[in-house]
Amino acid sequence: MAKITFVTKDNQEITVEGTSGSVMELAVKNNVKGIDGDCGGVCSCATCHVQVDAAHTDKTGVASEIEQDMLELDDDANEYSRLCCQLQVTEAMDGVVLNVVK
């Protein structure tokens, strides 16, 4: 079980619990605004863009090459950017804070 907090663009904080699946799926299930997941989670659409809270990057690890490439030319991307369909909900993610970009 992991508690994950999403902070939406309009500064709403939503904390939800999940046990499995991707963070994108968890966000969609909980109607988190700004996480659309249009491609269904296969790293093709970049509509699941989040920025990991700077203090929590150890919980999420680093982005894969395809994630980095997908975000490379995105004006809103920074060093904390992730496509959250590529983040799995695991114990290690407990307490993570993710800022929704769109």
């Binding site: 969609v28 909980n30 109607n31 269904g40």
Partner: peptide, 14 residues
């Protein structure tokens, strides 16, 4: 259901 576009609750919420 793991593959849903939106959860059931989301329709109610909106």
């Amino acid at each position: 259901e793991d593959n849903c576009l939106k959860s059931k609750d989301s329709y109610l919420d909106e």
